[in-house]
Design a protein around this nucleic acid. Structure first.
Length: 315
DNA sequence: AAATAGCACAACCGCAATTGT
DNA sequence: GACAATTGCGGTTGTGCTATT
């Protein structure tokens, strides 16, 4: 890249201004950055280009180091255990990639984010639930317990700086009685019912956001776009407990101009009404990300948790 | 063989928080 | 306290590879 000319006010005097190289990193650049960090340590990233000869901005250097060059990074795909952990963490804290990465040694937020988004797309395309059955079961159990114990929202439990995340703690999940009844009374064979309930948005809206701390002020996106009715959400428009099918495939792309949902809401239907009716409606000829029905499980799926998700749906 | 879709990954961007002056 | 610089985070996009049609 090199340099770019910037017009001065008059447009006559052109000054050379340093710009930074973009795009994929070369091994030479990696070496320069690694050498710099070895010598000076992490941090002060804007000084890198000044002292190392790298023509990269500080942000880019930091990102490269954190995501690729750090010696502690784990290489290779996610193990089943790591997958499980990611799912649990996501169920617990949402799109808090950095926090999730802190719980997964050797993994970066970017890795986790990519993993999750890929997984999400895949599941959405298949019309499958985001969270495996066992995760949902745990959540439901916790929800039932919470129904008996209202002390789940203690100040202590909301302590923001408490980054220590329980193995899989759904104690923050809150369900009101109505939802609990719904869950308990859902027909056993009606997986759709359960799926609806534990789709991401719902899950998120069930969470008391314990990690969005008062101290840690970073509040970049609304925790929910739904009415907060005490730990769970209702659809603003319909007043129902369920979200309507969403249209865009990716969580990140599902947003209104003014506000963003943290997760996609591709939940199905009116749970109180005629799920059967809706479910029996002819579906669009072409399946898209906005298609919410469970599609025939003809796709070949990768091994691991995803398969288990498929399995529970088939049965 | 070419076109297309899906996937995995890398990197950039904008914004907000934090830190330094 | 105000401002600027730096850092960190999450969303998004681009690219290359592979599988499928």
């Amino acid at each position: 890249m090199g340099k770019v000319l910037h017009d001065s006010e008059s447009g006559q005097n052109l000054a050379l201004e340093k710009t930074f190289h973009k795009g994929p990193w070369t091994s030479a650049e990696d070496q320069l950055l690694t050498a710099y960090v070895d010598k000076h340590g992490e941090g002060n990233w804007n000084a890198v280009q000044k002292h190392s000869g790298l023509s990269r901005c500080g942000k880019s250097c930091r990102l490269r180091w954190v995501n690729h060059l750090r010696p502690s990074l784990k290489k290779g795909g996610f193990t089943d255990k790591e997958e499980q952990r990611v799912i649990e963490l996501h169920a617990s804290m949402g799109n808090k990639w950095a926090r999730m990465a802190a719980q997964l040694p050797g993994r970066t937020d970017n890795e986790i984010k990519n993993f999750w988004n890929t997984r999400l797309k895949k599941l959405q395309r298949l019309g499958l639930p985001i969270y495996p059955d066992e995760v949902r079961e745990q959540a439901m159990n916790a929800a039932v317990q919470n129904g008996q114990n209202s002390d789940h929202h203690s100040q202590e439990s909301l302590e923001p700086d408490c980054l220590e995340i329980p193995e899989f703690d759904f104690k923050y999940l809150q369900l009101n009685n109505y939802q609990s009844v719904l869950l308990r009374n859902a027909p056993m064979g009606n997986n759709m019912m359960k799926h609806c309930f534990f789709q991401p948005n719902n899950m998120y809206n069930l969470i008391g956001s314990p990690y969005m701390s008062p101290n840690r002020k970073r509040v970049r996106e609304p925790e929910t776009d739904f009415l907060d009715t005490g730990g769970y959400a209702t659809n603003v428009q319909s007043g129902q407990l369920w979200n309507y099918p969403f249209v865009e495939g990716n969580a990140a792309t599902y947003s209104s101009p003014s506000e963003k949902l943290e997760l996609p809401s591709f939940q199905c239907c009116d749970p109180l009404g005629d799920w059967e009716t809706q479910h029996s409606n002819p579906m669009p000829a072409v399946e898209s990300d906005s298609t919410l029905v469970e599609s025939p499980l003809t796709d070949c799926l990768s091994s691991g948790l995803l398969e288990s998700v498929v399995y529970v749906n088939v049965n």
